[in-house]
Design a protein around this nucleic acid. Structure first.
Lengths: 240, 240
DNA sequence: CGATGGCTTGAGGGTATTCAAGTGACGTGG
DNA sequence: CCACGTCACTTGAATACCCTCAAGCCATCG
C-alpha cells in the first residue's frame, strides 16, 4: 500500500534511523515507502533469501531467528515499533542473514535497499546515523551475551520486565507482556518451562503478581536489586 | 612510536577496515598513526573512560570485557591482528563501552577517533567500509549468542578449534592455542574447569591430541561433524 | 463438543558450576 | 642450586541449575 507523503514522513520520523534526519533524506524514502499490515505468523523473509528491502516497524512485533543444521531455532531478537531490520543484507551480498517473522500483528514499512545504498553514498550525516544505530545494536548484543553468562533465568526475566517498564518506571506499575511467553522464553535463551518456573522464583524474591499476560510490579526498586547486580550496565536499560 | 609512512601504510593495508581503501584514505591515517608494543596484562582502556583513540592490532591478542556490579568479568571478545577495537566510542559519547587488555604481547596502532570521524564525513566509500566491518561484527555476535544456546561446552570448544584452523584446513593438522586456556574458557562462556572437561569429552568423540598448548587434529571433518550440526552457519567459519 | 495451542507443573536426568585438592611450570630470592 | 610462591591447569565430589519428557489445565475456536 502506498502512503501519502506526509504520512510516510511522519512514520519515518518515529524510527531510530530517520528521527533526526533532514527532509533531503526523508523525501526519497517517503516516496518509495510501501506500507503493509501483516498478521501474526507471516514470514517476512528467510535466511539466505535474496534481499530487496529493509523494514521499519510501525506497530506490532517481529521475531528474528536462525535455524541450526539439526533443526533447532535460535531467536536472535524480537523487535517493535521504531526499529529497523533486514538492513544487514546490504553488506552481506544482498542476502538476508536471518529469518524474520511477525510475532504479533504488525504494520511495516518496506524500503528499498538500493535507496539505502545510494543515500549512504551521498549523505554523510545519514551514513553516520546508520553507523550510530548499528553501534547501538552491537552494544545491545554485547549486553545480551553477557546476560546469558552472568544472569540466572529468573534474573533474565526480571531484566526483561524492567526493560518493558521503560526508564520512567514508578512503583507500583501495571503492564502487559507484549508477546507470547514461549517467545519471551526463546528471546531470553531458555525453554518455556524454565520461563514459567523462573517467573515463580521471581515472585518469591520480588513483590509482583501475574495473571496471564497482565503483570503488576509492586516495587520496581526491589526488582532492580534482585536483577541488576549480575549485570555490568546501570539501570535503567532503555532498549528492549 | 612514530612509524615511517610506508610502514604505517603497509600495516593499515592488512586490517579489515583499510585493506580495500585508496591512498586518499590511508595517507592521513598513516600520518597520525602511533605504534606501541604492549606486554601481556597491559590495560589499554577501561569502561567509561573518555576516548581519544581507536586501535588496530598488528600482532598479539586483545581481550575486551565488562565487569558486573557484583564483581564478575564477562569477556565480550578476544581479537587478533587485523582487527579493530575502541571505535564504538565515536558513537557512544566518546566513552569506551568496555575494557580492553592485552591478552598476549601485542603491537598496536593508535589512531585518533576524531580523524575517523572526519574521514567518514568526507569519504563515502570509507564510511561504507566501516559499515561493512560493523555489519560483520554484528553477524559474529549473533553467531556467538546462538552458540551459547545451542551448543554444548565440548561443541563450543570444537567450534573454536575449527575457527583456529582457518578455512583451508587439511587433516591432519597441528596448531597451538593462541592464548591461555582460562581465557579461551571465558571467551566461550564457560569456567576453566568446564573447559578442561570439555576438551576431555571432545577427545572421546574426535581423534585429537593435546599437550599444553600444542594440539593435533587428526581428522578435521570428524570434528566438524561433531561440532557444526548444532549451528546455523555452514563450515568453514572464517572469523575467530 | 472436541481439538488445538499456550501455559503450567511434576519427576527425573544431564550438564555445568562450585568447592576443594593437587600437579607441574616458572620465576624469585635465599 | 634449591626452596618457595605463584599461576595455569587438572581432577574429584557434591551441588545447582536448566532441560527433557510427560501429564494436565485452561481458553479459544471450529
Amino acid at each position: 500500500m502506498i502512503l501519502s507523503h506526509p504520512d510516510a514522513v511522519a512514520i519515518l520520523r518515529k524510527s531510530e534511523l530517520f528521527a533526526s534526519q533532514s527532509m533531503d533524506i526523508l523525501d526519497p524514502f517517503a516516496e518509495q515507502a510501501r506500507f503493509h499490515e501483516m498478521p501474526k505468523g507471516t514470514i517476512i523473509f528467510s535466511h539466505e533469501q535474496s534481499a530487496e528491502h529493509f523494514y521499519i516497524i510501525v506497530s506490532g512485533w517481529v521475531k528474528l531467528s536462525r535455524e541450526t543444521l539439526d533443526g533447532n531455532e535460535a531467536v536472535i531478537d524480537v523487535l517493535h515499533s521504531g526499529h529497523m531490520f533486514g538492513e544487514l543484507a546490504l553488506f552481506e551480498n544482498m542476502q538476508y542473514v536471518c529469518n524474520a517473522e511477525v510475532a504479533e500483528d504488525a504494520e511495516l514499512l518496506f524500503l528499498p535497499l538500493h535507496l539505502l545504498d545510494t543515500m549512504i553514498a551521498s549523505h554523510h550525516d545519514f551514513a553516520r546515523q546508520l553507523l550510530h544505530v548499528m553501534s547501538s545494536t552491537r552494544v545491545k548484543r554485547d549486553k545480551e551475551l553477557e546476560h546469558r553468562d552472568m544472569q540466572s533465568a529468573a534474573q533474565r526475566i526480571g531484566c526483561f520486565l524492567l526493560r518493558l517498564c521503560g526508564a520512567d518506571a514508578e512503583s507500583p506499575l501495571q503492564l502487559y507482556l507484549p508477546y507470547d511467553k514461549t517467545l519471551i522464553a526463546s528471546r531470553l535463551g531458555m525453554k518455556p518451562e524454565t520461563f514459567s518456573r523462573g517467573l515463580a522464583t521471581l515472585r518469591k524474591h520480588v513483590d509482583l503478581t501475574i495473571q496471564g499476560a497482565a503483570l503488576e510490579i509492586k516495587d520496581v526498586e526491589q526488582l532492580t536489586a534482585y536483577t541488576c547486580n549480575a549485570c555490568s550496565f546501570t539501570y535503567p536499560c532503555e532498549d528492549l
